[in-house]
Each structure stands twice: as C-alpha cells, then as structure tokens.
C-alpha cells in the first residue's frame, strides 16, 4: 500500500497524515516521503506546523537530563574546525547558505533596529513582533518586514532588487475578504520605519499577507495597486 492510497480523504487526508508525522508513528519510508512534501509544499508544511503547535504541550513529559561535556566539544569540532579548513572565501560567496544567512541577518538587524530604542523599557506587557519575508517568483525584489505591536510601527529592510527610475514601491496589506489597503510608499534606503495608521493596528495577525507593487512616483493614483506585485509574503509571529 502506498502512502497516497493510504491517506486519501476517506481516511482523513493530508491533515491526518501531518498529525501522524508529528506524532511519530510513520515508518522510515513514509517519514522520508512526508519530509520531502514538507520541503516542497508550503500548505502541507503549515498543516504539520499546526499539529506541532497542538501537540507541543505534551513535551512537558520529557525530563531535563544533564549532558556530558564531551558532547558540546564534539559539536564544536564538527561545526567549526571543519569549516575553517574547507570553507574558503569563494565557497562562502557562492554558497546558498550564505545568502540565506544574509536574509536572516537582515531580520536580526531589523529586530535590533526596531527594538533598540526600547531595550530597557519600564516593566510592561511582553513585546509582540511579527515578521514577514517578501519575495516573488520572477522578481529579484526582496524585503524583510517586522511589525512591532507596542509602537505600531513597521520596520523594513531592503534585501535586494532596485526600483526602476520614475517608479516607487508601495506596500499593501491584502485581506482575503476586502480590497488591498495601502500602507504607503516605501521610502528608499536599506533600513527604514513606517508608521501604521491607528485603524490598521488590529489587522496585523499571523497569516496576513503583505505585498509590494510597482507604482508611479508618489504611489498608486487610484488607491489600489496598479502595477505588478514584485514581492509578497505573510506575517509570522516570533
């Protein structure tokens, strides 16, 4: 019996397959097939993530157990000695991991940029941040976005892709049930902040889609996107 036959809708479908993966009951072959799907199918990966969230509280059943110091030494040997011996500069620049790291560095730099003025805040509710990585197929435009609920501000980091002369990038919030709402023209620069209109505050939630479109200088004349969307992504809680 193949995994596909065995996980048809009548048996619960993909969502139950995701639950079985998270629970850990699948065989080695099935787990390999599911891992490949997690890597290739974002919707399926989200189902797996949801089940991880649902079942995570069960992990209180795992005790904390002291680890022999030799383990950390072995990790450092594996990660850091090998690297200095084999990773020369050309490899660093050509490696995909470096570019991924750069995107992550953009998020982290942005986090510091947004949060630093408040690094020693008076005691108050924990700060809530949301991040989104905006990109699109067939476009080289990439932005990292971080929303800080405490200040109601968006921090943007321009990762790649230039605007054409005579054009501006405009940021939109896309709600499935309504027309896109403009968040404003994105200022030029590598790191910048944009205030959020007070009425929009409640709209920032995990899964909300943000998108960047190409517009005439000064922004869309119609109040709706007029140019192509060159980058989009959804907000995630961090």
């Amino acid at each position: 019996m193949t995994l596909a036959e065995d996980s048809g809708p009548e048996r619960g479908g993909d969502d139950i397959l995701a639950a079985e993966y998270v629970l850990g009951v699948l065989s080695a072959d099935e787990r390999r097939q599911v891992s490949a799907r997690i890597a290739a199918e974002p919707d399926f990966a989200r189902m797996v993530d949801r089940w991880e969230v649902h079942l995570a509280p069960l992990a209180v059943g795992y005790p904390e157990i002291d680890v022999a110091p030799s383990v950390k030494q072995a990790i450092d040997r594996r990660l850091f000695t090998e690297q200095t011996e084999t990773a020369g500069r050309p490899r660093l620049w050509s490696s995909l991991g470096f570019w991924r790291g750069l995107a992550a560095a953009a998020v982290a730099a942005l986090a510091i940029y947004v949060a630093v003025p408040y690094i020693n805040p008076p005691a108050q509710a924990p700060r809530e941040f949301m991040v989104a990585s905006l990109a699109a197929d067939g476009s080289d435009v990439k932005y990292m976005i971080m929303y800080d609920a405490a200040t109601n501000e968006i921090g943007l980091s321009h990762v790649a892709g230039e605007r054409a002369s005579g054009k501006d990038f405009e940021l939109w919030m896309i709600d499935a049930n309504a027309q896109p709402v403009s968040m404003g023209v994105i200022p030029a620069g590598t790191t910048m902040k944009m205030p959020v209109k007070e009425g929009m505050r409640g709209k920032f939630a995990a899964g909300t889609v943000l998108a960047v479109s190409v517009e005439p200088v000064g922004g869309s004349p119609t109040g709706l996107p007029t140019g192509p969307v060159v980058a989009a992504g959804d907000l995630r809680q961090i």
Partner: peptide
C-alpha cells in the same frame, strides 16, 4: 548523545527557518 550532536548541528545551520514557524 550522537543524536544530540546532530540536532545542534541542524540548529546551527537551520536557525533562520525559525521565523517561518508558529511554534514557540
């Protein structure tokens, strides 16, 4: 112990994926 080594190697190389998860 061997598994834990591999786990932390993964954490080092895949830490950037954390932002894409809804997990704590």
């Amino acid at each position: 112990e061997e598994a834990l080594q591999e786990v932390f190697v993964k954490i080092w190389t895949k830490a950037d994926r954390f932002a894409a998860s809804e997990l704590s």
